[in-house]
């Protein structure tokens, strides 16, 4: 393959990142800036960050689980349940720890089911999703309630002249970078996802996979806190889209669903691309239903371009 071909069509072996998503993202940006006057306005850029921040949070967690050959379908229901807990009539220092504790327990249940009882990740997280969604609808049957003003301020204000959604995004990225690319745990994630032999080299497979699921749920809870601050109330269905969206974003970013190959920057590009497409279609007044169709079509295309060894799940 020619040099140009290598750059454009071959994925980096560890990161799996193609140049194509990056190019598509840049083209989207340029196209939208040209097509709509509002695109580069300060308000729209801020909206873009506010839309992307929760997706980035959920996707980082999703990527950590996918790296160890897993999948977490319960993230969306954790987001919903978190907004439900935060909208309860209680002070912040009770609701926020309660929400994080809930997320840790959900992650622990996922992890224990997958590692101890060898339940397939999809089945395990699907059933836990049902339980968590049920709990979310129990805590808050329909959208409503009020979230403490501290959380609203944490999301909508400014700090040192920087808007809060931007700060959330940066903190999420730094945190994700530390975990995935700058820690022993991150290296172990790649090793476990890469092959069957990780255990032979003294890597505690079970413990690390368990930690991956707990982290994924906690990231989802953080996204829930952000969203609760944005809408200033609780909503049992606000998280529904995040399971599919986060998988789409992670897959777009070159992370292989078979595990062991992926990167944080790839996931960020995937999130950015997905948010750009959604934002652009909103600006161009595309129907919400067509947006769903487009999202599904992108997911199909990306997945069809990721051939694997095994057939099936």
């Amino acid at each position: 393959m020619s040099k140009v071909g290598q750059i454009f069509f071959r994925a980096n072996s560890r990161h799996g990142l193609w140049t194509i998503p990056l190019l598509v993202a840049i083209c989207c940006c340029a196209g939208l800036a040209a097509a709509t006057a509002d695109f580069v306005s300060r308000q729209n850029v801020l909206n873009l960050f506010a839309q992307a921040a929760p997706l980035i949070l959920v996707s980082i967690g999703q990527m950590i689980v996918i790296l160890v050959k897993g999948l977490d379908l319960s993230v969306g229901s954790v987001v919903s349940l978190t907004t439900g807990i935060l909208s309860l009539n209680a002070p912040v220092y009770v609701t926020v720890p309660a929400a994080m504790l809930m997320a840790a327990v959900v992650g622990l249940l996922n992890g224990v089911a997958v590692t101890r009882f060898r339940v397939h990740p999809i089945i395990a997280t699907l059933s836990i999703m049902g339980i968590t969604q049920g709990a979310a609808m129990f805590v808050r049957p329909s959208a409503g309630g009020t979230v403490a003003s501290e959380i609203v301020a944490l999301v909508s204000g400014q700090l040192f002249g920087i808007y809060m959604p931007v700060i959330w995004t940066i903190v999420a990225i730094l945190f994700g970078w530390k975990i995935v690319h700058a820690s022993r745990f991150g290296l172990h994630l790649f090793a476990i996802g890469g092959g069957e032999t990780a255990g032979t080299f003294g890597i505690a497979e079970r413990r690390n996979v368990l930690a991956a699921y707990v982290l994924s749920s906690c990231f989802a809870a953080a996204a829930g806190i952000f969203l609760a601050g944005r809408i200033a109330s609780g909503d049992p269905n606000i998280g529904t889209q995040y399971a599919v969206d986060s998988i789409t974003a992670v897959a777009l970013g070159g992370t292989q669903l078979a595990g062991g190959i992926g990167s944080l920057h790839g996931t960020l590009i995937g999130c950015g691309l997905l948010s750009l497409i959604a934002n652009g279609m909103n600006l161009l007044n595309v129907s919400a239903f067509i947006q769903t169709v487009v999202k599904g079509a992108i997911l199909l295309l990306v997945i069809a371009l990721q051939p694997r060894k095994n057939i099936g799940l």
Partner: peptide, 11 residues
């Protein structure tokens, strides 16, 4: 295409 069945059918 050997794509992941979960993702394909979900999409």
């Amino acid at each position: 295409r050997r794509a992941s069945a979960v993702i394909v059918t979900l999409a």
